[in-house]
């Protein structure tokens, strides 16, 4: 079949100059016509590429692209995850158990696994990040069934001991579940950034309604985006 040099090189993910040189040197089973049109046999060239390890690099770059999905919005994730009120319990285990049970966006069959994973993470180190906030999350990117990341916000009935870094009692949990690691890290970093703001903590302590919470977050996010443009 015939392809222009540029397109042909793109298919092999090689620079056109290099492909042209290899064709001229006779290193590639391709004939080049006037006007840099490459004429080749598809099976022969696939065999050649396999033999010279040229196909792998192509697949790899595709994978990288898959990973670099669009940045996820914190607000959207929170909306997906829903907001829960009055979670009760005396310690981390009971609170988490109840929170997981109350999560609405997940089939019940997956819940035991999720709870186990969250607890597993808590044993390594507490997810209490200070200022009365904890962000429980599984250690490995969670649950292949998850399509979009979600953050379930849980306001506790009463503050509990959570082994947090600053030893303060925890009054709110953000259960963070994400399909891939990069998304997880990105959301975690954004969430922590929000929580650095003491006004926001005070706002959270007032146990706001979901709509109010989301508008507040969206505003903050918009501000941040504006500041990022430089």
């Amino acid at each position: 079949m015939d392809l222009s040099l540029d397109k042909f090189a793109k298919r092999l993910t090689l620079p056109p100059d290099l492909v042209l040189r290899w064709i001229r040197e006779g290193k590639m089973p391709v004939y080049i016509k006037k006007g840099n049109i490459c004429r080749f046999n598809k099976t022969v060239i696939t065999k050649w590429a396999k033999q010279h390890n040229m196909l792998n690099s192509r697949e790899k770059t595709n994978n990288i692209k898959d990973n670099q999905t669009e940045p996820q919005s914190l607000t959207t994730a929170m909306k997906t995850g829903n907001v829960l009120y009055n979670i009760t319990g005396n310690n981390a285990e009971t609170v988490l158990k109840e929170a997981v049970d109350k999560i609405t966006t997940m089939p019940a069959s997956l819940k035991p696994e999720l709870y186990e994973k969250l607890m597993e993470r808590e044993y390594i180190a507490s997810t209490g990040v200070g200022k009365g906030v904890a962000i429980p999350h599984p250690r490995s990117p969670m649950l292949k069934t998850l399509k979009a990341p979600l953050i379930t916000t849980c306001f506790l009935g009463k503050p509990i001991e959570f082994n947090a870094v600053d030893d303060k009692y925890v009054f709110i949990l953000f259960i963070l579940l994400s399909p891939t690691l990069p998304i997880h890290l990105q959301l975690l970093s954004e969430l922590s950034f929000r929580l650095r703001d003491n006004n926001f903590i005070t706002f959270l302590k007032s146990t706001p309604q979901p709509e109010k919470l989301f508008t507040e977050l969206a505003e903050a996010e918009a501000k941040q985006d504006a500041a990022n443009i430089f």
Binding site: W22, K27, P29, H52, N53
Partner: peptide, 11 residues
């Protein structure tokens, strides 16, 4: 490495 492979293998 690519060049080496291309130069040393026969088509």
């Amino acid at each position: 490495r690519k060049e080496l492979m291309v130069q040393t293998t026969e088509i």
